[in-house]
């Protein structure tokens, strides 16, 4: 080595990479109940339009700079027929889809996904 005093092991880089990890972890610590409630609500909305595979879906939080982003990976099993959607919309005047759909969601949720909750 030409310059023996030159230390390749830069402790600064250690500090930075360790901090990056731990900060991302710290920032992602949203209350798990809140996360669960949010997941259910998002699923409710999505399930009005498509049938989601609840066993394969993934919700995750990731961090970049001061932005925390929520990534939802929702594999679609089946897209609802247009006619079916329109009928639902008509029946509810497009305002309150909640009631009809909640029944449907509960059915799929309970029968297929109850253990993973």
């Amino acid at each position: 080595m030409l310059f023996p005093w030159k230390n390749n092991d830069n402790s600064k880089d250690h500090a930075k990479s360790r901090l990056k990890l731990i900060i991302a972890h710290d920032r992602a610590s949203i209350n798990s109940d809140i996360l669960k409630a949010m997941r259910e609500e998002i699923l409710d909305v999505v399930a009005r339009y498509v049938e989601v595979d609840r066993e394969e879906m993934e919700f995750s939080l990731s961090n970049d700079q001061r932005m925390t982003s929520l990534t939802a990976n929702l594999p679609i099993r089946q897209i609802k027929r247009l006619g079916e959607l329109q009928r639902q919309l008509q029946e509810n005047n497009g305002l309150d889809l909640q009631k009809i759909e909640v029944v449907e969601i509960d059915k799929t949720a309970d029968s297929k996904n109850a253990p993973s909750k």
Partner: peptide, 14 residues
């Protein structure tokens, strides 16, 4: 390179 620079800290904290 034995201490994080101001830029490093800024990048981490945003």
């Amino acid at each position: 390179n034995k201490m994080m620079s101001v830029e490093d800290v800024l990048e981490l904290l945003g």
